[in-house]
Design a binder for these strands. Sequence first.
DNA 1: GTGTTTATCGTCAGGCAGACGACTATCATC
DNA 2: GATGATAGTCGTCTGCCTGACGATAAACAC
Lengths: 252, 252
Amino acid sequence: MPYDPSAFPPFAVTVDLVVLTVRRHALCALAVRRGEPPFQGRWALPGGFVRADEDLSQAAARELAEETGLRAHDPDAPAQDNGAHLEQLATYGDPKRDPRMRVVSVAHLALAPDLPAPRAGGDASNARWAPVEELLQRDGYGRDGEPVAPLAFDHAQILADGVERARSKIEYSSLATAFCPPEFTVGELRRVYEAVWAVALDPRNFHRKVTGTPGFLVPTGGTTTRQGGRPAQLFRAGGATLLNPPMLRPEV
Amino acid sequence: MPYDPSAFPPFAVTVDLVVLTVRRHALCALAVRRGEPPFQGRWALPGGFVRADEDLSQAAARELAEETGLRAHDPDAPAQDNGAHLEQLATYGDPKRDPRMRVVSVAHLALAPDLPAPRAGGDASNARWAPVEELLQRDGYGRDGEPVAPLAFDHAQILADGVERARSKIEYSSLATAFCPPEFTVGELRRVYEAVWAVALDPRNFHRKVTGTPGFLVPTGGTTTRQGGRPAQLFRAGGATLLNPPMLRPEV
DNA sequence: GTGTTTATCGTCAGGCAGACGACTATCATC
DNA sequence: GATGATAGTCGTCTGCCTGACGATAAACAC
């Protein structure tokens, strides 16, 4: 391939974000309403162009901060500093995925605790957390009665890929703690797994597994009652990132 | 983000290939020698520009065919038709990764049986299979005495990521069969695992595991003696793509 | 106090992996 | 043709982990 600037076509490169959180026992993703064509008025994943001097991960972190106010977590920093987990997901480059021009989108996956309220550049009506199950259904009505239209572009595929990545990754990594506040109980962690996998887990076996895996959880000494019932021990995420042996997802 | 063609910088988009195979009990990758600057004369991963009307996977399949003659395997087609496995790996977009201009490279991972001889556009002296261990070492000498220089661009990182993907993916998928010819023995499959993981596995436990996993291997009825010793049963890859429970990689 | 809820500890049986013995079937060599 | 080397295949045993589930503990609502 000789070097000739005219020999290759120019592309626009964007980052799109699959931002996941657990709200009211359901796995939810951040969606923003498109303000202009194409797909005007439809929901889409947040994202934007990569700037000329930006790395891809920098662009993703910048978009994440713009949309949610969350600082991106350095993937190599184990300490839970309330930043969001951010990792590259996959790249989508079908020539027809954007009708305007040739756009290659590098999708990223972010996992965040429930805390933040959406703010799409300050306009809350144009951003929301929606259950992924609702965003991925082809048509019909959401539970608030609003008609559901598929996500813009190929964002339904991107979201599905991100959800699948999250579902499989909490099996063999400690990533589920990224959905939790800095201190959390075993029950809260279990409800994360239950929401992401959409299954019910035995509380006793779950407790044995997570407390018995070295480096997964570190007790902080405190206890709390957030759900009624017996007070629970508080934990922080431990240094371990890989779970060996993994958490087993129940058969479907 | 209003639509304004001048609002985003133009990028060149390439695909780079990590093509892995197992040769002489070692995991090897395809490397090509660069014919022009930058990094002239250095080894690099094969790759090239994505064309204006091509999807990313099409571009990767085209490059793979140009470099090796291998047909890419449809990732959704379970039948082993001697095509190579091809999947997207990750995307690399550091602004300084190519000194000439802003290039975003969508790396792909290909796994192939040992059969093909390298042919970089017909010029065999500019392409070779090299042990990944040799390609990844920072300096020193290869076993043929030739001095070793690091791969061009960020290709050492890309290769390392591809190798790590392959190493982890053969744990929980039947992908190791992609390194084997259409019909193979349990011993040949075991040597694939041993080469990719660089470990020794117990032949008896390995045999029990792979023959006991439903859908992993299908006996063809034939037997063969390729290594001296008792003739071995021949198998084809079964329909299963996910191994449950997974193959366990021995502790390091 | 009583019932409800959640957390935590224990017990038991089944499945699977690692370690390793034993036997089989071919080839090379004497 | 016997002998050893090489490689494949079948079994056994033990320990660990998981799923199912009983029991106890500590809060709150009434």
